[in-house]
Each structure stands twice: as structure tokens, then as C-alpha cells.
Design a protein around this nucleic acid. Structure first.
Lengths: 396, 396
DNA sequence: CAGGCTTTGTCCTGTGTGTGGAGAAAGTTG
DNA sequence: CAACTTTCTCCACACACAGGACAAAGCCTG
């Protein structure tokens, strides 16, 4: 289902489209207040946007003491697709042009099955959303993958947990299939963009977004823009050393953060505690499920299990050690913690905070909020639509 | 000595001025190739710059196969002052508009004597340079201080090693005294700008510049721009933990990088080794000088002293641990190591490299040069002139 | 509800920016 | 010296944008 979505002709139009995306329906007069253009110029650009069909009239605004202004909004038929490929599941969301989620699907899937199988799954989920009536084709799609990406080309590069994807032309392939523009990024960066657009990070220019899932990654936002590094691997903090000579890590080193704390490490620690009989609760869960996950630990902690709580606290301390270093180095205005293990919630958060506030520079922690992400599992997919909308709403 | 230096009227002129600064004398035709403006427009802007006196005619360029072009260069009378206030000494340099150093002075001085005393020293050094004939007043001055700075206002904020400077209006005061525009920044950031302008970092957009002096700091450059963080303390890596439960640090924590490796820590370790009779060389130096410095260790190492070498190697390993983490996180295109202890040179460098290449992500270290700074002790002062020239060569 | 005031939207003109061509000036090459 | 190239200046034209005039639409007051 190919669409010919118009693109803005100049930066003014791009600016207007983004304002409408972020603020929803808006009167022409209000837009004038926001963009610092003469009324004549503004009228011309708005008229051109109306011609392209990207925006539509939307009734009259309430009077501000005189003649009522015409409302303008982004075309209600625009649709963006957001895809978040995790290590063990795929999230797909459809939004309108204001990035409001109209439909959302989640499907468990191992990314190691490779790009072809995953793409098939993604396309069938997109088709399902289309069939359910929330969309008829897409004006753009963003997709996140759990590994480094050569951003301009939209190609994964040397991804450790998804070796089959190395060099696969994700952007081009998906663009072919969907018949719309596609942008690809690291899943952690997309989570950061999600929280920036619709979550806790809205007003902050420089922040870090730590995602704890199977592995651990960190989105870096500088001056409102995602920073990706020289080879696209920026934010890969899972293998920073927290304990010289510590646990052996899959990467070959010792004492990596991920070896001591991550979804996988936590589950492993819990299983060991269960087998050693240190926790009745965890043992019971292990009995029924055969293996434990981070969610089990989270649930046990919520039920008051002391060992589970201690595991989370200990993990938070490790994570806090690393974040403390990053805070000293980067001096962010906010640290967001999210990802699948957000269920660990406030126990983890408290532990991280303690460690960071104790260990980082006072000047860097003064007024530094450390908070949980607001968007939950949809953050990545929302961020993906934000990414592609930034692209579609920029001059061709 | 007040000067009324003209400022460019628009971004084109600013662009031209910076090109002339970075490339030296240039023909009008060549400029046309560089800026992507029509010849007519370019001629207009160049003529205006000639009128202001910021640039002057500079003879004829060699023919490129036809009529010879007129050369243009920045006014040879422009002078920038670069000041680098270290913990224990002050560097002052005078440059022309192309940031070539025309005069350079260094004076030992403890920054803790406070802003008034230091300013007096700086002004007398500037006067001396004036008197020596290299300058008659300045068109701008940049100044670096060893602590965090609220950059827009040019005011040190909560600087640990120079408490008397907290809130002192450095920018305003110096601007008053010198009668020219002044910009203030952290000394480490200036070193990064220096290496970027005239040193090893010239072609790199994203890099880190680690400065080892009394303390340890790190300049962060993102997309060619210095990143200063939310409160101006970005890059303050001296108190990142390298050894949980390690040495007590002046900051109150344990195991900080600075406690294990820095100019001061190195000197302390050396003194201890000397007193314990582990090194004849160091003991001899201690005997004559009464105390040891990082330079002593450096000299002893150069003379083949095994203990001194081991101290440097051990320090490089600690430093390498931290840099490895930062490389994984930031994925820079280059790491520069500089500062007073560059005398430790290749021994230190080798040790850092080993640690980083072993511990960081392969993707981040692939093609990652780790090199010594090229500019030596003048890097900060040169960076300071670069800072102020960026300011003076931007639209008023 | 009439009249005055405010806000909004449109039209039009003036200004400044910037492009590109014509052609003169200055050099090179054979 | 002729033919060709490059540089520089001048000029006409296109375009972007601001801001004023004016009409349309609405509010408020007496």
C-alpha cells in the first residue's frame, strides 16, 4: 500500500508541522505567536500546507476578544508506524500525526531468528493493525533494533545479540515493503526519544535514559538531539566495569555491569538463591515455571521476599555505580530509568539514587532528578514514530 | 587600552572571518569556492569587511590560469589574549587573528591566592607582552579556570580547588580591565578547543580530551562543539570510582580516580616509595628537593627507574579503566591525553591503550586513536584565544 | 441593538537579500 | 598577437519577508 505523502517545502513549514504535532490543533493566530513570522508570511505557508493536504482546517477557535481564528490541525488521516524490536519480543504501534497511539500489538519473538522471520512478523502485525481499521497504509515508519546502527544508512552494525542482522539493510527493506519512508535506530535511543516526546523528559535538553532489559543500554540526548557516537555505539554501557576481577561476562571480560546486573543476571542470581534454599518464594516460582525471570524477582519483591529485595538493591547499587560515573562525566539534567524491568520500580530507584547522590559530584547531582520512565513498554514504539515524524516533517 | 573592534554584520561575514582565521590568507576566488555564495554577494560582503577593517587586502594570488585574484587576510593588527589559569601556574599568550602565538609567558602561582591576586598577575603579564611590542591592546580575551563555570555569564561555580573564586564575575571584571570582550571557560574545555583548532583533533567531530594535572578533567566535544553539561560541570571525571573501597579521597569518598592517579597522587606515591627505600633515584631527588612532583617521577622513569615506571604504568591502568568506560559510553572518534604530566608520555599512553582496547567495546575501539596532545602547555591558552575568536567572529 | 473596540485574515507595496548574466580587466598559452 | 581562462564589477531580476491598510468577524457597553 504505497502512499505519496507530501513533504514540507521549507523550514517554516517543517517548523509548523512539528508545532502542530506537539501541540495538537492550533489556531492560525496562536501559530503566529509561536513562530515569529509576519501574519502574511504565515498565511502563505499555512495555505500551501493546506494545499498539500498535510494539514486541514479544523473549525473555529474560541474568540480571544475579537474575531475568531480558524483552527488548523495535521491531517487526521496521517499514520505512523512504530516498531520496537526487543531481544525477546516485538512491539508495533500505530499513531496519528500527533503521535497518539491508535493501536498497539506485542508479540514474543527471539530476535536471533533473524531479519527475515522478524520482518515477516512485523509486517503481519502491521497488516493486522491495518485490518482493524486504525490505519490504511502508513506515511512513515520508525524501527528500533537492540544493537548499534549506522544511522544514516539504517543498517545494524556488528550487533552482539543479533549477529544475523549485521549489515542487513533494514531501512531499505522495510521501506520497500511498506512503501513509505523508514528510519532505523537503536532501541535505547528510541526509548529516549519517546520519553522526550511524551514522557518525563519533555522539558529537558540534556539527559540520559537508561534501559534495563536483557542487556543494559543508555540513550544520550544532547541539546534535544540524540547523540549516537562515531560508529553508532554510544550509550553501550553494559560492559563498563563495576568490579575489577568480578564476575565473568559473556563478552570475555570480568566485572561488567551486565554480568552483575541485568534481566539475565538477576534471573540467574534468583535461580541460584532458590536452589540454595535461601528464598521460599523464589523456590516456589522456580518449581512451577522451571526457570526464573526478572519479573519473578520483581513479583517476589513486591510480595515482600527479603532475598528478592536484596537482589534488587544490590543490582541498583551496581547500576548506581555506573550511573554515578556517567553523571559526573556528562552532567545531565535528568536521568530516566526504564525498560522491561521497571517492575523493579522504586526499590531499584531508591538504590540507584542513594549510590548516585553519594558518589557523584555535588554540583552535578544538585537538582538532578532520577526517575522512572513514564511510558512503559510503548516508549520505544512511540519514540520510533517520533523519529520518523521528525524525518517526514523536514524539508525533502 | 580600549579598542572598538568591529563585529561581523551577518553569518556570511562570520563564516568568512572564521575561514580566514583557520586557513590564513586567501584569495577572493578561493573564498568563493569555500562558501557557496554567488560571486556578486561574496564581493559585497568582502568589501564590507574591508570597510570595517577586520580584513585587509594582501597582494595578488598566483594565477590559476587566468587573471590573478586579490588576496584577503584578517587584519594583522588584531590581537587575542589567551589566559590559562592552572592550579599552580598561569599561562598567558598573545596571538594574531589567525591564532598564531606571538608571545607566551608562564608564571607559577597558586590559584588559591584568589581572583584579585591572580588578576593582578595576569594583567601584569599582559602588560609585559604589550610592552614587548607584540601587541597594543587586545580585541578579545579568553580565560580558562580550573573548575566548573557557568558559561553564559562567565562565572566560576562551586569550584572545589579554588573556593575563593565561587561566583566571582571573572568575565565582567576582566572585560572591564582589558576593555575588550572576554569569554570564560573551564581549562579542560579550552585545552580541547586548542587541540581541535591547532592540534591532533583537527578533523574529528566527537572526541574526548583528558587533562591530567593537579586533578583530572575531560573535555567533551560533540559535533565540533564543546559540551558543558547542565550546570557546567561535564567532564569532571576525577571522582569517578575506580576501586570500590579504595583509597580515601579528599572529596570524602573512596576509590576515586584522582586518589589513585593524578599529579598529586603520583607525587605522594613516589615520596612513599622513596622513603621506603624502594627507589634510589626517587630517594635522591627527594633528598635534594625536599618533596617530589609528577615531573620527578617522569624524569626518574626516563632515566630507567623501575619503581617510577611501575607507578606510571599502574596509574595508566587506573586512568585506562575510567577512559574505557567513557569510550563505551561516548563512542568518541579520538581520545587525546594531555596536561602537565604529558612528560609521562608513552609509558602512560601504552598503559592506557592496553586497558582501553581490552575493556571497551570492540565497535567503539575499532579505529579509535588514543594519542598525546600536540600543543603541550600552550594548549589551554591557544584554546582560550580560539574561544574568544569564535565569539568576536560571530554576529553582534 | 447600535456603536466602539479588538482580533483576525487578506491584500499590497516596499525593502533587502541573493542569483546569474554580460562584459571589462587581467593573465596564460601557443 | 590571437585565443582562451579566470577574476571582478555592474546590473537586472527573482524572491522572501515585513508591515501597513483595510475588510470581516466578534466582543462589550450603555
Amino acid at each position: 500500500m504505497r502512499r505519496m505523502t507530501a513533504r514540507p517545502e521549507n523550514t517554516h513549514q517543517a517548523r509548523l508541522l512539528r508545532l502542530l504535532r506537539d501541540n495538537g490543533s492550533n489556531s492560525r493566530a496562536q501559530l503566529g505567536d509561536l513562530v515569529d513570522l509576519s501574519r502574511s508570511k504565515l498565511a502563505v505557508e499555512v495555505d500551501r500546507l493546506l494545499e498539500t493536504g498535510l494539514v486541514v482546517a479544523d473549525g473555529l477557535a474560541p474568540s480571544r476578544g475579537g474575531r475568531r481564528s480558524h483552527n488548523i490541525r495535521l491531517s487526521p488521516t496521517l499514520r505512523f508506524l512504530g516498531v520496537d524490536i526487543g531481544a525477546t519480543s516485538v512491539d508495533v504501534a500505530v499513531t496519528n500525526a500527533e503521535l497518539e497511539v491508535l493501536g498497539h500489538l506485542n508479540h514474543p519473538m527471539d530476535v536471533r531468528e533473524g531479519p527475515v522471520a522478524v520482518f515477516e512478523q512485523v509486517l503481519s502485525m502491521a497488516a493486522k493493525l491495518n485490518a482493524s481499521g486504525v490505519a490504511e497504509g502508513f506515511d512513515g515508519a520508525g524501527i528500533g533494533v537492540p544493537g548499534p546502527v549506522r544511522f544514516p544508512e539504517g543498517v545494524p552494525v556488528a550487533p552482539p545479540i543479533m549477529p544475523g542482522w549485521d549489515g542487513f539493510p533494514v531501512r531499505e527493506a522495510l521501506s520497500q515493503e511498506l512503501g513509505c519512508p523508514v528510519m532505523v535506530d537503536n532501541d535505547v535511543n528510541l526509548m529516549a526519544m519517546g520519553e522526550q516526546h511524551a514522557g518525563v523528559a519533555r522539558p529537558v535538553g540534556d539527559f540520559l535514559c537508561v534501559k534495563i532489559g536483557t542487556g543494559i543500554g543508555c540513550g544520550i540526548v544532547v541539546g534535544g538531539e540524540v547523540y549516537r557516537g562515531t560508529t553508532g555505539s554510544a550509550g553501550d554501557i553494559g560492559h563498563i566495569q563495576v568490579e575489577p576481577g568480578g564476575r565473568a561476562c559473556a563478552c570475555g571480560n570480568r566485572g561488567c555491569l551486565e554480568a552483575h546486573f541485568s534481566g539475565a543476571a538477576l534471573a540467574g542470581d534468583a535461580e541460584q538463591a532458590a536452589r540454595e534454599g535461601r528464598s521460599v518464594q523464589l523456590a516456589a516460582r522456580l518449581e512451577t515455571a522451571g526457570r526464573l525471570t526478572a519479573e519473578d524477582v520483581s513479583a517476589a519483591a513486591a510480595a515482600g521476599d527479603a532475598v528478592a529485595l536484596e537482589l534488587i538493591r544490590e543490582g541498583g547499587k551496581r547500576l548506581g555505580q555506573v550511573i554515578a560515573g556517567l553523571v559526573s562525566f556528562f552532567n545531565p539534567g535528568l536521568v530516566v530509568i526504564g525498560g522491561g524491568v521497571t517492575g523493579l520500580g522504586h526499590t531499584l530507584l531508591a538504590s540507584v539514587r542513594t549510590q548516585v547522590y553519594r558518589q557523584s559530584l555535588p554540583l552535578a547531582t544538585r537538582n538532578l532528578p532520577i526517575v522512572l520512565g513514564e511510558l512503559g513498554p510503548a516508549a520505544g514504539a512511540i519514540g520510533a514514530t517520533r523519529l520518523i515524524s521528525d524525518h517526514v516533517f523536514s524539508p525533502a
